[in-house]
């Protein structure tokens, strides 16, 4: 089966019902996506299919055919530059054990890509499927808000520099 993960095509020989979580971890060797519960309760396995956050432990591999899969390894801008969300996570010192954080970041990333000004209620709604046993929720909330502000600054800066160029 052909999969596109983080903009790379990968050919894998797997049972079409094998959950994407295990295809990604075992067959594609991307271990940033984590196993936490296997029943869609914890969000540790969150990835994106065409930009929408999904629980990969409940998504059969065949459901991803023809779609773009994004994992935590695929959100940085390039090798040297993290995504603003990742930078904000470091600024706010979010991670503790770190195990849930890939899933948290993928949910937050999906939120910010459709809502650049999330309210507290929006954050609750988008993030409540992701458990953090270390209790980093207050910092996750701050991380999302910081990233949202930086992204707006960033787009403003970009559109301004575009303006000047024209």
């Amino acid at each position: 089966m052909n999969l596109s993960i983080n903009k790379k095509n990968i050919e894998v020989d797997v049972d079409p019902y094998k959950p994407l979580l295990w295809v990604i971890r075992e067959n594609c060797n991307l271990t940033g996506t984590k196993f936490g519960c296997g029943i869609g309760q914890c969000g540790a396995c969150t990835i994106q299919l065409d930009g929408v956050a999904v629980r990969s432990c409940l998504t059969p591999a065949q459901a991803a055919e023809g779609k773009e899969i994004t994992t935590i390894e695929g959100i940085a801008l390039n090798e040297d530059h993290m995504h603003l969300l990742q930078e904000s996570w470091i600024e706010e010192q979010v991670p503790q054990c770190g195990y849930c954080q890939s899933g948290q970041l993928m949910s937050a990333h999906a939120l910010l890509s459709k809502n650049s000004h999330p309210s507290d209620a929006d954050i609750d709604e988008a993030m409540s499927g992701n458990i953090c046993r270390c209790g980093t929720y207050p910092r996750i909330r701050r991380g999302i808000k910081r990233a949202a502000e930086l992204m707006i600054l960033d787009t403003n800066a970009k559109s301004k520099s575009h303006g000047e160029m024209e």
Binding site: T31, T33, T71, E73, I90, V94, P95, G98, S102, L105
Partner: peptide, 11 residues
């Protein structure tokens, strides 16, 4: 922290 936000932290 860096390895725990880019998926490379090894558990």
């Amino acid at each position: 922290a860096p390895s725990k936000v880019n998926g490379t932290a090894y558990f």
